[in-house]
Amino acid sequence: MAGLSLVNVKKIYPATNDHKKSKKKHESGEEKKAQLQVTNEGVVAVQEFNLDVADKEFIVLVGPSGCGKSTTLRMVAGLEEISSGELYIDGKLMNDVAPKDRDIAMVFQNYALYPHMTVYENMAFPLKLRKRPKSEIDKAVREAAEILDITQYLDRKPKALSGGQRQRVAIGRAIVREPKILLMDEPLSNLDAKLRNQMRAEIIKLRQKINTTFLYVTHDQTEAMTLGDRIVIMKDGFIQQIGTPQEVFDHPANLFVAGFIGTPQMNFFDAELVGRGGHYAVVLDGMTVELSENKQQRLAAKGVAGQHVTLGVRPQHISLQCESGSVKARMDVFEMMGSEIHLHANVNGRDMVIIVPTTDINGNYSDAFTIGKEIDFSFSGSTCHLFGNDGKNLEF
């Protein structure tokens, strides 16, 4: 198998007349609606992308629509030309190598199966193109079918299969080649929620059974968190943060990552960071919370001064309080989610969400939470995040 390395990779699409007009409007002082940078060369879809992927590592590119993640994947596949930068697979420069010679396989969002072929023929097709012996093809197809639990469908046509079964066939067609790198472009986005959960588990099992490097693209942060060894979070063509799922959840690099990773998303408040006797504390609506020792040390090491900050606290890290030192909020609505309740409230004009386990509620939850009721909440100094005026995490 092989590792993958992208060094200052950039993708620029030639500007259309619409983009040129948009740029002129922006330069004349009118509001710029497009988020991607428009230069004299064109629209910059991917900005100096740098990533080293280890052999057999599972990397997930995640971000909102239009952030450049699929474009990056297609450049690795050779389906998009690299405008500048270098792409290495197994230590070899691949910029000008044809897709068929890169020893990669790709699973597309829409399955891309041949409707006139059976499942067996679809999976065997890439090996037939390579003129492999029939016995070798048969062995590879049946082994892949066994791994993906689709042996019973080998004689069927794609139209006779469900969406999840078709996706398994598409994955099977990719892995029979034993590629150095397996690329997957939002393969689960066409499936319903229950089937997506099942297929995520299948991909995790598949990863344990085959020895290959995975590069997976999705806009679903749940998929990213459950599948990836590391996550690459993108926005407007730029990499925002690279790290393990736990790292990006616990230590988001900026406001975008903090708001994008986590469901429901992180709550944000206007607050003040103050220094008290060499110790840092955050003040929100009259409540003072001293930060944890780890946060104190990181802020002190960077020499962070007291300042106005955006305070981030995840919904599951907020606790309801009835004490004078807490912050008051007004209940707007609540959602019963089975094992937990999502409380939507308003604090000084800002919306927030609090997650309350149903085990914490005595009696009927509809009596405990009334629309328009005033509630009190607080949080600990170990679970809050501080972001400066530039949106970056002040600790890192």
Rank of each mutant, 00 (worst) to 15 (best):
V62C: 09
K100R: 12
K194Q: 13
I242D: 01
A124L: 05
D96L: 08
V282W: 04
Q47T: 08
S70P: 01
A77K: 08
L183D: 03
T288V: 11
V43Q: 05
L127G: 09
L284H: 14
P252K: 07
S366D: 12
K92R: 14
R74K: 14
Y216A: 08
V53F: 11
L386R: 06
K159V: 13
V119C: 12
Q321R: 13
K11G: 00
V217F: 01
M287Y: 11
Q265P: 14
E272S: 11
T71Q: 04
M337I: 08
D351N: 15
D285F: 07
N122K: 09
L79V: 15
M75G: 04
Q296D: 10
S28F: 02
R314M: 10
G278N: 09
K56A: 09
F387N: 03
A160F: 00
E31M: 14
P64N: 05
L127P: 06
P252C: 06
S70Y: 11
I233R: 01
G262H: 10
H385Y: 07
D367A: 11
D332I: 09
K69G: 01
K24C: 00
T226S: 13
N211F: 00
F268T: 06
D185G: 07
S28G: 10
M117C: 02
I361A: 05
N17R: 11
V313H: 04
A144D: 08
I203T: 05
C384P: 00
V232I: 03
M75W: 02
I210L: 04
A300K: 15
F249L: 13
A345G: 05
G163R: 09
G163T: 10
H344Y: 14
T263S: 15
S189L: 05
D101W: 07
F369D: 07
S339W: 03
K56D: 14
R132H: 10
I181T: 02
R166G: 02
L87R: 08
A258G: 03
L36I: 07
G262W: 04
V38G: 01
E80H: 08
A124S: 12
L386S: 06
S380Q: 06
A368I: 03
Q321W: 12
N122M: 10
E323M: 13
D236R: 03
C322F: 13
E41T: 04
L311N: 06
D96V: 02
D220Y: 08
S366H: 14
D360Y: 04
A160S: 12
G372R: 04
P133L: 12
I82L: 01
Q246A: 10
V283D: 07
D96C: 00
Y120F: 15
A201M: 09
